[in-house]
Amino acid sequence: MSKIGETLRAYLADRLGGALLFLAEGAVIWLVLWLGEVAMDIRDYILLLHFVLWGLAFCFDFSSYHRQYRYLQKLRDKKGELDRQENRIGLGDKKLFQLCDEILEEQNHLLRQREEEEKNRLKSYQEYYSLWVHQIKTPIFALELLLRGVAEPGLSSQMNAELLKIKDYTQLALQYIRLEDMAADLDLKTYALENIVKNQLKKYALLFINRKVRLELAEFQLDVITDEKWLAFVLGQILTNALKYTAPGGQIRIWLKDRTLIIADTGLGIRAEDIPRLFTKGFTGDNGRRQKEASGMGLYLSAKVMQTLGHAIWLESEQGKGTQVFLNFPEQSLQEY
């Protein structure tokens, strides 16, 4: 429906009484002239003049109504703050629309005030949790020093594995806080992908040993433009997930195909109905609910990070057979960022 047609329907609905009055008045005039035996040419002239005057009044009134209607529609449909100056029409003598303007101005003020309060509240949360994450690093470091003095190798290994989990959860919280300003934190350079992968495997070597999971790492070479810290975070999330859901005696394989890094495990696998939602914030899936350790944030943050870096991530899985995670690195130059 055209804008004019939509306005016309609204106009006729609002002016139905006026339209009926116009028809009734025309009929009364015609009846009076007919009963008064006025000459036909004079009667026709009077009726024509009546219709012309009413037509001019209609055109003027409809034009004014159309502008007002479109103006209020635009105000209604605007997202965020309403700009009452845009497409403003001269309604200074219309008390109703003056009141509308006053209401909108008040709503704008309240909206701006609430937005500012929300920004301040969010900033306070970010500052608090940033401080908490940085403060918690001190006792973590102290624990690492204390564990070096534990004489029993088996106990020391288990405690170090649990300490690594604490560090990972802490890092997850910190990266979530930083995600809003990730672009400002990026340090894009050309890196050898195999070196970043090997560094993460070295970091989680203790978990491989403790969980008795075999590693098969194919030799590969690929230079990628990325941020080493953020890509390492993504690799860490994928490796910890693979280790968490792979039973002792299982295997994790890593290889490169074209420009896609593939990390495959022989773990529990994922239900088909869970796969489309795995990168959704807070979604843990059936495996996460069983393990009772999943936060539903790891893959969500990984997807966000990969998207910001200009990379891609997806996965394939079959329940009971394992999962394959694919990290794709399109060929790019630094000028493209």
Score class of each variant (00 low, 15 high):
291 Q>A: 14
273 E>H: 08
276 P>Y: 07
224 V>M: 03
307 Q>W: 05
285 G>W: 10
245 Y>Q: 13
217 L>R: 09
286 D>T: 08
247 A>N: 11
310 G>T: 12
257 K>L: 13
315 L>R: 00
237 Q>L: 06
328 N>M: 12
273 E>W: 11
235 L>N: 03
235 L>T: 10
258 D>P: 00
241 N>G: 04
306 M>E: 02
321 K>Y: 12
221 Q>E: 15
217 L>P: 04
265 D>I: 03
230 W>A: 15
264 A>K: 04
277 R>N: 15
300 Y>S: 00
257 K>M: 07
313 I>H: 00
231 L>F: 10
272 A>L: 14
247 A>S: 07
292 K>V: 08
249 G>A: 02
290 R>S: 13
291 Q>M: 15
320 G>Y: 04
322 G>K: 03
236 G>K: 03
322 G>N: 04
217 L>W: 10
294 A>N: 08
230 W>R: 05
324 Q>M: 11
256 L>V: 01
245 Y>C: 07
276 P>C: 09
311 H>E: 11
222 L>H: 09
308 T>A: 12
311 H>S: 09
299 L>V: 05
242 A>W: 03
301 L>E: 14
318 E>R: 14
252 I>H: 02
240 T>I: 14
268 L>D: 13
299 L>T: 03
250 G>V: 00
317 S>V: 05
276 P>R: 07
321 K>F: 14
305 V>S: 03
237 Q>N: 14
231 L>A: 04
294 A>H: 12
265 D>M: 02
265 D>N: 12
264 A>Y: 01
321 K>Q: 12
248 P>E: 15
253 R>H: 00
265 D>H: 00
300 Y>G: 03
262 I>C: 08
235 L>A: 03
322 G>S: 02
217 L>I: 14
251 Q>H: 06
324 Q>S: 11
220 F>S: 03
224 V>W: 07
240 T>S: 08
220 F>R: 06
256 L>P: 00
240 T>M: 13
264 A>H: 07
281 K>A: 05
267 G>A: 02
255 W>V: 01
301 L>W: 09
322 G>V: 03
281 K>M: 04
253 R>I: 06
230 W>Y: 15
227 D>P: 04
250 G>Q: 02
312 A>T: 09
242 A>L: 05
267 G>H: 04
319 Q>P: 01
243 L>Y: 10
295 S>R: 09
304 K>M: 15
301 L>Y: 09
282 G>D: 13
263 I>L: 15
247 A>I: 06
240 T>N: 06
243 L>T: 13
312 A>F: 09
310 G>A: 10
